[in-house]
């Protein structure tokens, strides 16, 4: 297995170091969020304060409907933050324009509960979609990196398979390869093991941990799954829209 060490990507290291010196990768202060309008308006996040430093693996747990996914989508730029302050990689996302959010998303690798692979694309093409966003890669570079990434997640012999022909665990591994192939600074994962059996779930989490350590990226992982709590550097707990720190 080839090591994707940081010396191959010096520009990333510099940026990461600079960011680490300056401020946390993710910094939320007094972040609140509301759904609905008028008298249906309902607050789902209450004054969230959260700082995550570069290279940390943070797990967020909590019951269903507590607002975990909402916070994750705010940090990922999928939704526009409303009040308070949310700085991700030095960029203020509170009240940011749609275009700013779109560009901010490109900094993250997002892993969903479902694999969400494109059924008309092979594993390789799916992974390559994660690189096409970044204009500085040439075609051959994109292919090389995607193949390398798939080999890295142990699917080197499945690169031309369509998602329909892969098992659930394999699909989730392709999704991880897609999220990590562009070496994002932050990986956001929303219950990535929920649809998997315990062994595949464990493999997937180990894989994420390994790749994150190699690439030096920060992971925020929402989960219900007690079996994977051990990979965390820190665990935070969300309940009724309020965040409480949890001992590791």
């Amino acid at each position: 297995m080839q090591t994707l060490n940081s010396s191959v990507y010096p520009q990333n290291t510099d940026a990461r170091l600079a960011a680490a010196v300056r401020e946390p990768v993710i910094a939320a202060h007094q972040l609140s969020h509301f759904f609905g309008h008028g008298h249906l308006r309902k607050q789902v996040l209450f004054d969230i304060d959260l700082e995550i430093n570069a290279g940390e693996i943070v797990l967020m747990t909590g019951p269903s409907g507590s607002g975990k996914t909402t916070l994750l989508t705010l940090i990922g730029g999928l939704r526009s933050a409303q009040t308070g302050s949310l700085r991700v990689l030095g960029q203020e996302l509170c009240g940011a324009s749609a275009d700013t959010l779109t560009l901010a998303r490109r900094q993250n690798g997002y892993i969903f509960q479902a694999h969400n692979l494109h059924g008309s694309l092979t594993a390789l093409q799916n992974v390559k979609m994660g690189l096409e966003l970044h204009a500085h890669f040439s075609w051959t570079e994109m292919i090389d990196r995607s193949v390398q990434m798939l080999e890295h997640v142990g699917l080197g012999d499945r690169i031309d398979y369509y998602p329909d022909d892969l098992s659930g665990g394999q699909k989730q591994r392709v999704a991880i390869a897609r999220a990590l192939v562009s070496h994002p600074k932050i990986v956001l994962a929303d219950e990535p093991t929920a649809a998997l059996d315990s062994k595949s779930g464990r493999d997937v989490v180990n894989l994420m941990q390994m790749l994150a350590k190699e690439q030096g990226c920060t992971i925020l992982l929402v989960t219900h799954d007690n079996r994977i709590l051990d990979i965390a550097d820190r665990i935070v707990n969300m309940e009724d829209g309020k965040l409480s720190p949890n001992s590791v």
């Binding site: 901010a104 997002y110 969400n116 494109h118 979609m129 966003l133």
Partner: peptide, 14 residues
């Protein structure tokens, strides 16, 4: 393909 398209948007496609 709505779900796949949403995924692409989440990845940062315009």
């Amino acid at each position: 393909h709505l779900k796949e398209y949403a995924t692409f948007k989440a990845m940062g496609y315009r």
